[in-house]
């Protein structure tokens, strides 16, 4: 325990001391943001401390869970038909009826992201994560939201949490590598690259456009294991 980072704990204790404040939505968002910042700083203990704070929060009361679930299903059906507007309405209603419905909050964030409504997408995903801070899919959605807003730092933190909480880390690793090597959006690509490096995972040493000035020069010397030339080479 001695290695727990002090600032994260002190902050958590301060917030915990004000229950009314700690339980409201804004404090939950604060914890989520802290999880992102701590992850981007590779501060594992800080991330876990904030995760614990979120997990201690009581779940919001549901007005009508059955109706919320019905709206969730309606929203999913609309999504399958690629009707984002209908899905949005359904998920909004589901969340209103049951603010503790993680699926509804997560899908609401997804639809907002699809529609390019970043602020709303961020809020919905933060809500989903405050309910279940280990939900890798929601972290991944949130990373994309930040990536598309050119916020590489927060995208990196969210991607780091995606990897941390992934059920299959090797799959998550390949997804990150795929983004780092192929994603068209610079911010998201760079965030994936930063995340791989943060986690000390291998990645092709590639710099994609736009190139930094004079970046990544490769000395033309042959390393220990020379390649066999391709058979088709002239």
């Amino acid at each position: 325990m001695t290695h727990l980072r002090k600032p994260a704990w002190l902050l958590a204790m301060w917030l915990a001391a004000i229950p009314a404040f700690a339980q409201n939505l804004e404090s939950n968002r604060f914890y989520v943001q802290q999880m992102i910042e701590r992850a981007a700083a590779n501060d594992e203990h800080g991330v876990v401390a904030m995760q614990r704070m979120l997990e201690q929060n009581p779940r919001p009361a549901a007005a009508d869970p059955a109706a919320a679930n019905a709206m969730l299903q309606a929203g999913l059906a609309a999504l399958r038909q690629d009707d984002s507007n209908a899905a949005l309405t359904a998920f909004q209603q589901a969340v209103q009826m049951d603010p503790g419905n993680i699926e509804a909050a997560n899908h609401l964030g997804l639809v907002y992201r699809k529609l390019g409504q970043w602020t709303e997408a961020e809020r919905a995903l933060q809500q989903a994560l405050s309910l279940e801070p280990t939900r890798a899919v929601a972290w991944f959605q949130l990373a994309q939201v930040y990536g598309l807003q050119n916020d590489v730092q927060r995208a990196t933190g969210a991607l780091a949490n995606t990897y941390r909480y992934a059920q299959n880390p090797m799959r998550a690793e390949e997804i990150l590598r795929n983004i780092a090597e192929n994603e068209a959006a610079d911010t998201l690509r760079n965030a994936a690259l930063a995340t791989l490096r943060l986690q000390q995972l291998p990645v092709a040493d590639l710099i994609m456009p736009p190139l930094a000035p004079n970046s990544d020069m490769m000395p033309m010397t042959t390393p220990a294991n020379p390649l066999r030339p391709p058979r088709s080479a002239p």
Binding site: M208, P209, L211, S215, D216, M217, M218, P219, M220
Partner: peptide, 8 residues
């Protein structure tokens, strides 16, 4: 004197 190249 040939020295280096960009990897990309």
């Amino acid at each position: 004197i040939a020295t280096m190249g960009l990897k990309v």
